Simulated scan of single mutants.
Amino acid sequence: MWHGVIPAVTTKFTQDDGLDFKEMERCFRYLMDAGCDGLIACGSLGEGPLLSHAERIEVLKLTKSVTGNKPAILTVAEAATRDACALAEKGARAGADGLMVVPSTIYHSNHKETVATLRAIAAAADLPVMIYSNRLAYRVDVTTDMLEELADDIRFVAVKESSDDIRRTTEIINRLGSRYDLFTGVDNLAFEALTAGAVGWVAGLVVAFPHETVAIYRLIKAGRYAEALDIYRWFRPLLDLDVSTYLVQNIKLVEALVIDSNDRVRAPRMSLEGDLRQRVEHVVKTALQNRPALPSFA
């Protein structure tokens, strides 16, 4: 159902901490024009947990206005299942094409609780669901056993696999075949996951480098691994910025430096300063000095 490069977009703020719809529209269109296959709104990178439900729905509506006939997916990541179901229902009414669901963000649910939460959210919206498994960030591991248990509900269509264990990709495919559209959610494991059978990439640094991200994906799917690997190796220092406590600040600063956006974030986050900022600036400067020419892959 879903495949390709689907960016987890950043949420843009005005200087007085409101939503900057004009800048979001510009950035979102840039991604779609570069060949991305949909957009995911209000995820971790999109600072979703720091937005009100009303703000998240407004960002979703803007996202859908840009994606057109490609999917606009709303992230649901709430501490309480009740609140997650309420947001899922609002997203469905607002025109979401699907949901990306984090099982629990505060309480670290067990197997039974995790499965029950995912089922409840899927039922509340009655939309296609991408299960977001990220045991490092959220401490809840949606295991292959859980995926097998959930496979009887056709609303669960995809998995964003972010366990940081590349072996999990093969494990899921070996156990469940093509039952789920398997996406990699770790930028600096993308080449490895896509060559192991993942059909999509929920990407972060794509927001500043969409053409390179799309090129890697399409070259891999065309079997042109050496060309994809050359770009990926160049990209790796940038992709490493996605695997960090400061991933939001890192990537927004990259957007500011590369596509002339801004790095405003919502408190308690603060924009990078000092050594942290200089490190990102150095990585970007080095990458731009050596930016590769992209081959044709049409």
Rank of each mutant, 00 (worst) to 15 (best):
H211L: 15
G223H: 06
A86N: 05
L118A: 02
A228I: 09
I40H: 01
L288I: 02
A298C: 04
I106Y: 14
T81S: 11
L74G: 00
S163H: 06
D181Q: 08
D275G: 13
S163P: 03
V157A: 02
V142A: 00
G204I: 09
S163W: 07
T170V: 10
A228G: 06
H211Y: 14
T105P: 00
T117Y: 12
A86S: 05
P210M: 13
A54I: 12
I172S: 00
I106S: 01
D240F: 03
K22G: 09
G95K: 03
G43I: 07
K90G: 12
A208P: 05
A196S: 13
Q15S: 15
S133N: 09
T10K: 02
R264Y: 02
I73H: 04
P71G: 06
S104K: 04
E23H: 11
T169V: 12
A41H: 02
A84V: 00
L257K: 05
I172R: 03
C36A: 07
T11A: 03
A226G: 11
L99M: 01
P128I: 13
C85R: 01
E171N: 08
D153S: 13
L194P: 02
A88Y: 04
M24L: 13
E255Y: 14
L229H: 05
S178R: 10
P49E: 00
K90D: 12
I216C: 08
S261N: 09
L150P: 02
K285P: 13
H108R: 10
R167D: 05
D260G: 13
M32C: 01
D275E: 11
K22T: 08
P103W: 07
I251V: 10
R291G: 05
V102I: 11
R233I: 04
A123S: 15
L51E: 12
A151F: 10
E58A: 00
I172A: 04
D240M: 05
S296R: 13
T63W: 02
R29L: 09
A41T: 12
V202N: 08
G197M: 07
V129F: 15
I57K: 00
R93L: 12
G38W: 00
I166P: 04
G197V: 11
S44V: 15
V66F: 04
Y225K: 14
F191W: 00
E23K: 14
G38K: 07
T63Y: 02
R168Q: 09
G91Q: 01
N188H: 05
V243K: 13
A116Y: 14
L239Y: 08
N188W: 01
E161A: 07
I220E: 11
I40K: 04
D152S: 07
E47P: 04
N134T: 13
M32K: 07
K61A: 10
D263Q: 11
R155H: 09
M130W: 15
D187T: 03
V5M: 08
P237I: 09
T286C: 15
V202C: 04
